[in-house]
Amino acid sequence: MARDLDAYLRQEVKSTPFCPGCGHGILMNIILRAIADMELDMKNILFVSGIGCAAWIPSPHFNGDTLHTLHGRAIAFATGAKMANPKLKVIVISGDGDLTSIGGNHLIHAARRNTNLTVICANNMIYGMTGGQVASTSPLGTITATTGEGNPYRPFDLCRLVLGAGAEYAARFSVTQPLVLMAAIKKALGMEDFTFIEALSPCPTQFGRRNKADSSVQMLKALMQDCITREQAKGMDKDLLKTKIITGEFHHE
């Protein structure tokens, strides 16, 4: 992590636990830069996470209050902490499996209540920590530890899911799009609503190696190719579009 962000990191924990090339490390950087840019006071921020590799992004590294909870329950813990002390800025950072599968019910209900939380979902489309099992976000056909023949089910469109549940703002960007991703995080943090950021974050260890992206560089490159804007999506060939990930901001209509 860059020197200039030292103040945002807990002194006694220096190294991060992520595999080389893991997108979670990049996301960590982007989140802290967004906070630094906005000059938010870390002493007033509570970071809540669940269980998984992504849940280690804030805990214990971030030098604010951090609450590393149970698998799937980060939003429920965050709701209690925020409601009991509304002055806190509460940011939930966790994985796709954590927030949208086991914790999916809490996600939609927090969106429905419009609880003032920013939820950042580090989406690597897989259960990273437990060894690469299929997730509710794995694309159709993905090879995983539990879908050797390819995932037979469609993935969630997370942004549409939370907007449908009532979220005021949702955005999807990849860690390969750091500037727009950071801008989206800043926008979300500036709102007093339930806001949702889906940050696509490659997991070379569990996703990449099973799905023809052997190195983390390859994975990043693939993500860069796959992520397109909504503008680019317009008029794109249907079959081609199926292989793409549409990124952008999504507002409540």
Partner: peptide, 22 residues
């Protein structure tokens, strides 16, 4: 603060969160 949560898991988790908020 009173919260009717979406289930008992959310209820107890939010209670823990609230307790840490003082």
């Amino acid at each position: 603060v009173f919260m009717q949560m979406e289930d008992e898991i959310a209820s107890i988790c939010s209670v823990v969160g609230a307790s840490w908020s003082g």
